[in-house]
Design a protein around this nucleic acid. Structure first.
Lengths: 201, 201
DNA sequence: GTCTATATACCGATAGAC
DNA sequence: GTCTATCGGTATATAGAC
């Protein structure tokens, strides 16, 4: 039978990404991927040398351009506070909209060996983390910029990561999943803390 | 051959916990567990009806008493600020010392279906989250207590979760992994924010 | 309570036709 | 580039001896 719709590598990767995000490397078989792509499992080996190679390329594909997108929001002429808010809102929207990206990221932090994590930080986070750290230094020289950057990103990630769980916890409301509500809350907390009356409602 | 050292369920669970924490449900086989326990894979089926049952009981075992421990630090006569600091430090030490607990928790949030997540929040987090929310209301009535509680726990979890990755990021220092350094940073940030000079009290 | 042996299914990967 | 067929290995789980 003549193949009606031959696939290229990127198409296959894009279809594999949600599978790996949902079930992890060990939870997805080559047959599973082949099924959603619409070809046989054997055909996957024409495009990729083995399963690990397919997985790593899928992760790289899912992470591509994320760093660039975020770094751009930090490299403007706006005042530092505005740049921080823009970054927080952009990051919030990014991980809210692209659930696969966040899942794969968390899975990589759990499963990746030292070599892969090093590569990950270089490819995905280096520029962005560098920019946010410089911004932290500018905004609050008294704070350790590394700890501060992790605190900001940690809140963003965790608010989205716990989306599914939080509805069962006390005080959970639907609007807590709105990326803008999350961003406003984090910015306000980071800037002014609990003991301030400078807060912006 | 006479069995030299028969195992009970709890012993098996305790030995399975680090395996599931490190490699996840799909990354651990019944043979793997049997090997570290020191019995045959078939013998596991005397204690557990199937792999899923063993896994769920291992998770329950790993999570047992965590809620109680944390809730206790919140139920004292100390002033609210002191209670918040005690909670942050205790939580920081807890997830730093028990890496299996945090790994399993994150994996459950990725893999658990709605039913399991609901059970998880009831068993592990309900009292603790309830107490921290009441404390948040007391400390900062102007903030949404749910968002605030997630921000506090999110920072704690993320600082420890990224332990392995952060060494490759700008400004990373060994002392950033000290649970007390993390706790002090988070408490200070939460209470006073970056603009501490414009706080009222 | 643990063993050996085994049933059954699925896995990753390859061979060779088209 | 994709197919069918298949290999060798491993998975979960069971049967039955001790």
């Amino acid at each position: 039978m003549r193949p009606a719709n031959p696939k290229n590598k990127v198409q296959i990767l894009e279809m594999a990404i949600p599978l790996f995000a949902k079930s992890g490397f060990n939870g997805v078989s080559m047959r599973d991927i082949a099924a959603v792509v619409g070809i046989s499992a054997a055909a996957l080996y024409y495009h990729f040398s083995d399963k690990q190679s397919l997985y790593l390329q899928a992760v790289a594909q899912a992470f591509a351009n994320k760093d660039e997108t975020l770094t751009k929001t930090l490299a403007t002429d706006d005042p530092p506070e505005q740049r921080l808010y823009n970054f927080i809102l952009k990051f919030s929207e990014l991980i809210y909209q692209d659930a696969n990206f966040l899942s794969l990221l968390i899975r990589e932090m759990l499963d990746g060996d030292d070599e892969r994590l090093q590569k990950l930080t270089r490819q995905v986070f280096r520029m962005q983390f560098s920019s946010i750290i410089d911004l932290c230094k500018e905004l609050a020289p008294k704070f350790d910029p590394h700890l501060l950057a992790v605190s900001i990103i940690g809140q963003l990630v965790y608010h989205i990561e716990t989306k599914q769980v939080r509805v069962y916890l006390k005080g959970g409301k639907p609007e807590h999943n709105d990326p803008e509500v999350i961003a406003d809350h984090i910015f306000n907390l980071i800037m002014y803390g609990l003991k301030s009356n400078c807060s912006v409602e």
